[in-house]
Every structure is written in structure tokens, then in C-alpha cells.
């Protein structure tokens, strides 16, 4: 399959020519296939947010290219605007961007800006609300009367309603309770499967990315330092720890087991852990 998104030698420097000059992205190159679920990890200030804002044309590269379907999004104005809609971006704490009188109107804001017909907007609003688990009767409520978790859902629905082919989320579960986190993550995955969309998610929860994603990108000091399956990335657990990043709790436990002299493979999911442990006992498991 042809890659939907390609990033070529992307660099970005903030405040060029001032004492605050700061290189936020340094020669980042990767490509994304349709339908992938990608996790982006990296400590604060590693360039994740800057990278995300390049992918839908909010920031202009200092050098390098972003290609959507093989076409440079900065090569013509129309393509830049299209990129805004084809690549949906959910910022951190998106509930702070709500502004309309009703939940319905707020979710409809993006599709309206796309210039869609009233029926199409209506369909998308209801579908997006359904995707994130906002009940139909809540659509006429003021978004400011909702709880924090509900606001977050509405804000995510506002982006989903634009039906982006690539959905990018910056820590969509930050500050939510465990049940809310799980729910939102499942909703995002459902959107990806049903719409055959690509999802890129920035997260600090290694447990979440290990479980959900098929590919992990690790950012450190403005560079893309690792890019591969969770297995490949978590095999470099020691390097991740040195970068100041966390590793999944299971991986950590198994690293310790290995240090204690047990012959276990590095793991990052519960499934693997069970397999690895049963293998250890020669398949004779009564768990």
C-alpha cells in the first residue's frame, strides 16, 4: 500500500535569529501507512507537539517536506487547507477549546467550516457523538454543564466529526479516571477500525501504547530516535530508561526477573507474559 503520509527531513527552529532560538525538530523522516495505530512517546520538550502541528499544516517546516498522498502540503494553498481537514488534530486538554451554546453546535463547528451541507453535518455530528459515547439527549445541553470527562469526549467528537483520514491526539486521556481512559481509548480504536483511519497518539502511558498500538515512535531531543513495533522498541528498555522515559510495568517486572536469573523473554503485553511464564514451567500451567 502506498503511504498516506510522508515526512521527509523535517526540521523546525523556533524564534530564528533571536536569543530564544531553539531547534524543536531535527531531520525527522518517516512514513505512515493507512490504518496504522501509532504511538508517539518522548519526554516533555522532545518535539512531539511540534511534530504533530506540522502534520496538519499549523506550523510551517523550517526545512523538509510533509507529503499527503505524495503531494507536498505547502506546495499550494488549497492543499494546505485540505491538510487541515484530512489530518485531524486533538490538542492536549481539548475541552478548553469548547465555546458553543450546545454540544451539538460545538461538534458541528469543524464540519461547518468544511462547508458541508446541513444533512451531512447532522449525520457527522450524530455519528461522532456516538463514536465517543455522548448520548443523543446530551447534544442539546450546554457543553459547560458537562463533567470534565464528558467535555473531553465532546471536544474529541468535534475533531472526529471532520472525519479525518489521519487522527492525531495529544495525550487524549491526561487527567481522566481509569474507566474514562479506557473508554476513550477504545472509542478511538473503534473509529480507526470503522473508518479505516490512521491514528497517531502521543501518550505518556507506556501501558496504553504497548497494548493498543502496532508501531511506536520515540522522540528525544528533537530527533526521532526509534521507530518500530512495540516489541522492537521495548527491547531497548534500557535505552528508554536512560532517555528518562518509562517502560510498561510488565516489561519492568520481566527485566527484574531476568536479572534474578530466570530465563524469560522481554515482554510488554499480558498475553506475552503469560506465554513466557508458561513456557518457563514447561507448559504445565494451572493458572
Amino acid at each position: 500500500m502506498a503511504p498516506i503520509l510522508q515526512v521527509k527531513n523535517l526540521s523546525h527552529i523556533y524564534s530564528t535569529g533571536t536569543p530564544f532560538e531553539h531547534k524543536a525538530l531535527d531531520d525527522v523522516t518517516f512514513s505512515v501507512e493507512p490504518g496504522e495505530f501509532i504511538g508517539i512517546i518522548g519526554h516533555t520538550g522532545s518535539g512531539k507537539s511540534t511534530l504533530m502541528q506540522h502534520l496538519n499544516g499549523l506550523l510551517k517546516p523550517t526545512s523538509g517536506q510533509i507529503l499527503l498522498d505524495g503531494k507536498d502540503i505547502w506546495s499550494d494553498k488549497q492543499l494546505t487547507r485540505q491538510a487541515r481537514f484530512r489530518v485531524g488534530l486533538v490538542f492536549q486538554y481539548p475541552e478548553y477549546q469548547l465555546f458553543e451554546e450546545t454540544v451539538y453546535k460545538d461538534i458541528a463547528f469543524g464540519p461547518k467550516n468544511m462547508g458541508l451541507s446541513a444533512e451531512e453535518i447532522d449525520r457527522r455530528v450524530r455519528e461522532a457523538a456516538d463514536f465517543v459515547g455522548v448520548a443523543a439527549e446530551q447534544l442539546e445541553v450546554s457543553p459547560f454543564d458537562l463533567s470534565g470527562g464528558q467535555k473531553r469526549r465532546v471536544a474529541i467528537a468535534g475533531v472526529i466529526a471532520m472525519e479525518p483520514e489521519i487522527l492525531i491526539l495529544d495525550e487524549p486521556t491526561a487527567g481522566l479516571d481509569p474507566a474514562g481512559r479506557e473508554d476513550i481509548l477504545q472509542n478511538i480504536d473503534r473509529y480507526r477500525k470503522e473508518k479505516r483511519a490512521t491514528v497517531m497518539m502521543v501518550s505518556h502511558s507506556m501501558n496504553d501504547v504497548a497494548r493498543l498500538t502496532q508501531r511506536l515512535m520515540v522522540m528525544s531531543d528533537a530527533r526521532l530516535v526509534m521507530d518500530g513495533s512495540p516489541e522492537e522498541v521495548f527491547n531497548h528498555a534500557q535505552e528508554l530508561l536512560e532517555m528518562g522515559l518509562d517502560i510498561p510495568a510488565l516489561t519492568r517486572i520481566f527485566l527484574e526477573l531476568k536479572k534474578l536469573g530466570l530465563d524469560v523473554a522481554p515482554v510488554y503485553t499480558m498475553q506475552q507474559a503469560v506465554e513466557s511464564l508458561t513456557g518457563l514451567r514447561g507448559g504445565d500451567c494451572h493458572a
Binding site: 502541528q53 490538542f91 477549546q97
Partner: peptide
Amino acid sequence: SAQKARGVD
């Protein structure tokens, strides 16, 4: 930025 991402011009 967030509203631009939702298509405000």
C-alpha cells in the same frame, strides 16, 4: 491553534 485545526480561517 486548536480552532485552526478545526478549520477556522
